[in-house]
Every structure is written in structure tokens, then in C-alpha cells.
Design a protein around this nucleic acid. Structure first.
Lengths: 130, 130
DNA sequence: CCGCATCCTACCGGATACTG
DNA sequence: CAGTATCCGGTAGGATGCGG
């Protein structure tokens, strides 16, 4: 069942130079860390479910997120090349954000997670949650 | 390209009761938060790449992780039903951990992340990393 | 409207020591 | 061996105010 995935991981291990493999591990780790931050997947999902670009205030209202946090998330995403930021020199100012192709190729994984979550429950009785 | 995933998500949105949908969102969020914690994916990957159960000290040595942190991670994983813990009443004590079927069904997503990472880079020039 | 600067609190996580 | 208890430093992130 998960043989294919294990094979794929081991294929990565064997075919890639150790340095490259390290980098991939690290990228995945960093990616998950970034997505683990406050409102990160909420932002991601918002982008995933809409073809339209989003403006700061709209995101802020939609997610009910503090501006400082949202600002940090958007900056990180942009720095990681996951979203594009378009600023228009207007008055009042207008800035729009939209997902890059790079992050769009990540959506299937998120979709898989949703599918998984619909089949299984995460018992969070112990832990803290949102 | 990602149409299938968007359709799947929207299918989830439409067919599920709002409450269920909320729960799924929350589960995914919590899951990513848990995986974003220290040594979490390292533990996960260690399990993914081995069919054998792991003992506490072996994991500790393998990952070079502080016992308190590793202990927390394992407890969270077990509470979430992602790993099974088997304690044997021996002397000296022996405890073994192994992934559940539930978490094995999560591995493909991690594998997809690896594939993604092998194609794209995450620009972390701005951010902090490990 | 966009979003940074600041302040403050909570909490995570590393190190270390210790027990059944 | 398998953890727990304790202390402590770094930091994420919520709230708020202000500037461009």
C-alpha cells in the first residue's frame, strides 16, 4: 500500500547525491515548519480555493488574522517563492497576492491531507489546538 | 493540473456538513502543527524508512535528540493515534514504537513533498532554518 | 488601504540531573 | 533502559498604534 512511497523515497536516497538528499530533507522540513505557523495553511487553502488574487484586507477579514501575523506569513511565502505580490501605485494603495505555479504543485498534497482527515480522526484530547 | 485536487476539496465542501468540514480543516491544521514541531518529521521519516519498531534510546541516538523533546513528540504521536507504544514488563525495561496504519496512509503525502522538493527549491534566505 | 514598529506574554525546546 | 522534573533562553504571535 505504501510500498510505492517507500520505494520512491529510497529511490531518492539512492539516486541523489548525499548533499542533494540532505537538501531535500531540509526543504521538506522547512516547508512543514513554515506551514505549521499561525494561519499558514488557512492562507494556503484560501488561495487554493480561489482563482482570484487576494488583497491584504480581504485576507485579514476572511481569516480574522492579526495584521502583523498575516504580514509575516505573506512575507515568508513570498520569500519562499510560493506567492506573487503585485503592488499597484494607486491611491489608495492596492496590493494583490496570488499563488505561484510552484505552490500550486503543492496543492495536491494538501488535498490528500484533507482526504486523509476525512477518513481518520486526529485525537487531540491531549494536545493544545487552535 | 491541480483541477482534480480543487474538485476534490470542493466536493468535500459540498457533500460534508459544515461541522464536519470544520473538523477536517482543523484536523489538517493540527496535523501540520504537530509535524512542524522539533524532530517530528525526523521521527516520522525514521519510521517510514524502517519496517522494524524502534526503541527510545535508539531513536534518541539516531536523531541526536534531547530526551524531553523526543518524549514529547512520541507522546503527541501516540495521542494522535499515529504510533503504537508497546511496553514489555522486563528488566531492564523495553519499549517499542511503531507506526500505525493510520499514519502509514499519510506517508504518500510526505513522499509527494519530497518529490516536490526535488523539483523546486524553497528560498529560505529570509527565514530562519534549522 | 497596506502593513510595519512596538510591547508583552506564552510556550517551545535544549540541557541537565535524577528515578523506577 | 526509559523516561520525568526542572530550569531557562529564544521566539512566535496577539494587540495596538501609527505612518506612507
Amino acid at each position: 500500500m505504501d510500498e510505492t512511497i517507500r520505494e520512491r523515497i529510497e529511490w531518492l536516497r539512492e539516486t541523489l547525491a548525499p548533499v542533494e538528499h540532505e537538501e531535500i530533507e531540509e526543504t521538506v522540513t522547512t516547508l512543514i515548519e513554515v506551514f505549521g505557523r499561525a494561519y499558514a495553511i488557512d492562507v494556503l487553502r484560501t488561495f487554493a480555493l480561489s482563482n482570484e488574487p487576494w488583497r491584504f484586507s480581504d485576507l485579514e477579514a476572511e481569516l480574522d488574522a492579526p495584521p502583523s501575523t498575516l504580514s509575516a506569513r505573506l512575507a515568508e511565502f513570498e520569500a519562499a517563492g510560493l506567492i506573487d505580490r503585485h503592488a499597484y501605485g494607486e491611491m489608495p494603495p492596492r496590493v494583490e497576492y496570488e499563488p505561484t505555479e510552484k505552490v500550486r504543485e503543492l496543492f495536491p498534497a494538501v488535498g490528500y491531507l484533507h482526504w486523509w482527515a476525512s477518513r481518520h480522526d486526529l485525537d487531540t484530547s491531549d494536545g493544545r489546538k487552535a
